[in-house]
Design a protein around this nucleic acid. Structure first.
Lengths: 305, 305
DNA sequence: TGGGTATTTTGTCTTGGGCAAATATGCGAT
DNA sequence: ATCGCATATTTGCCCAAGACAAAATACCCA
């Protein structure tokens, strides 16, 4: 890129990095980085190189590193942190997943769509979600954290998976279905894919999902549960959602919600929870969703008609 | 609504209204409105009523009114200004829209879906978007600002509209199409419905949309544009996106993007922009999208095969 | 090893002032 | 009246330095 001498004002850096203006200024004051140039007005102008480094730092922070440490490091040490991250990943037919990951990395979205579709048909929704979609989403998340793929590749992948699920749900006209289940996430949790997968599973399992989409405040969840007469409120949490907010949110919701409405909490984000929360059923794996369904139906057999 | 005594901290008000923290504080200092309560820490807590009024003021500003005047007015005078422009969308009968609004208010989502679908079939995608979907979205936004509906009703409505568009796009296998158009929003802009409507229109108009979903940083938009070899980058802005961020973002993108890639900016959010931005085509209405398409094809007739 | 307490660390909010770009206003000429 | 231009006002963003509480870490003891 020829824009070596390009520099961005603080508002642009805020948009690009996700770090607030206040944070950028306070870092400069406390840690001595970044040190932007100044224009004639005395206002900050961040060189493009510093912006890139800030993006890298933000990514490492999302991975759990603390700013105080990161901001002391030089470029080489930062890069060194970026690469490693030994982890063990799932047990599914790795080669197949590898092949798909390669499609994601090369952002070949024309090729992705038909392959997904074929795999869905072959395995059926339930197994497709558990064996293909969920592991893939996990690996894409990991790859993004390690800087092996960019935001763009991740977006393209998510869009096509979303399209796939929505196409699969097309034309399935719901009328009745026994547990009526409200689907949403708490404010701040933006990830929709988890909800979509649950909706797909519930639909084929003859439940009645009511999809609200992401980010519903607790008071509105309560209103919705009453208005739509649901039996269960199901929430999805990704790994990036702060653990304490998860606990707090679930506790608050349990308190606010009528006791005869169950709460199910699923997603990678709830695997991290040590302690159970009273009155909340944890669904760390998709397999547990089926168990929860069976359990609910068993319990409510007598009560209903 | 039970949330009478609810109050929001300044960051939430910024998110809800699209008015920056700085602006909120400087209005308080200069015009004496809003005057938020303070918590134990001395930090601002905006009553929900003031937030709604701020949303209304922002809407009127987007329409060309100046803050200095608006902030002197009382509630009645504000409502008087607000009402007249309600019927800007002539094509679909107002009664029809009223009927749909009643479905939204009563969160009757079982009834909504088939009606939407029938209207889409009857009018065709192009007219459905312009005469039904866009006006309805606008009215739902206004109803929310006036506290006539809650978040829950708004979410349910959005979900079903989204489902509708995604179903409509099902099975339309794209191979080629002349302007290749990247669809996304800038970081911070979460609204997806605008993008979906554009994708639907572009598809039926035989263009080649590449949907990235919301919130792509500028550097990634540039990468995506190169990788997918697009001719146009199309961005969508809702009214709640801060105006200055819109201008700054478009300017930054124009600078970062290769000159032979056009930039189109659409959505209610760009109606507020007074001045044109060099190298960026404004698409305030959906009708302008067709004009833009025709224009592009005309210009690039000679260059291509 | 688990659990509770002290101690950093860290992000967000506060105030009040300054400045330039956008917009309105006034005035003279056509 | 209406246009053109110069002057005045409005308006939003940025700056600085300080304060404070929530989160994360370190520490200690059972």
């Amino acid at each position: 890129m020829d824009s070596d001498h390009a520099a961005l004002p603080i508002a642009s850096v805020e948009r690009e990095t996700g770090l607030s203006k206040d944070t950028l200024r306070v870092w400069e004051r406390r840690y001595g980085f970044p040190v932007p140039a100044r224009d004639a007005k005395g206002e900050r102008l961040y060189p493009i190189g510093q912006v890139r480094r800030l993006v890298q730092i933000k990514r490492l922070m999302d991975r759990g590193h603390r700013p105080g440490k990161l901001l002391m490091l030089d470029e080489a040490a930062l890069d060194a942190l970026d690469a490693p991250l030994s982890f063990v990943h799932p047990e599914t037919s790795t080669q197949q997943l590898d092949a798909w990951m390669r499609l994601v990395e090369t952002h070949d979205h024309e090729a992705m769509q038909p392959l997904f579709h074929r795999d869905l048909i072959r395995r059926g929704m339930s197994r497709f979600v558990q064996d293909t979609a969920a592991p893939l989403i996990h690996r894409v998340g990991e790859a993004w954290a390690r800087n092996q793929i960019g935001v763009f590749e991740e977006h393209l992948f998510s869009q096509h998976l979303e399209k796939l699920f929505r196409e699969a749900l097309t034309g399935v006209a719901l009328t009745e279905g026994k547990p009526r289940i409200l689907l949403t996430t708490l404010s701040g949790e933006e990830h929709t894919l988890g909800l979509l997968m649950v909706e797909a599973l519930l639909t084929v399992e003859d439940a009645y999902p009511v999809m609200l989409g992401p980010q519903t405040p607790i008071s509105e969840i309560v209103r919705a549960a009453q208005a739509k007469q649901v039996d269960v409120v199901c929430l999805s949490f990704s790994t990036s959602y702060p653990t304490n907010q998860t606990i707090q949110g679930l506790t608050d919701l349990r308190q606010a919600l009528s006791a005869n409405v169950a709460i199910w909490a699923g997603g990678f984000g709830v695997k991290a929870l040590r302690k159970p929360i009273e009155g909340v059923l944890m669904i760390p794996e998709f397999a547990d969703l089926f168990a929860a369904l069976v359990g609910w139906r068993h319990q409510n057999q007598a009560n209903s008609a």
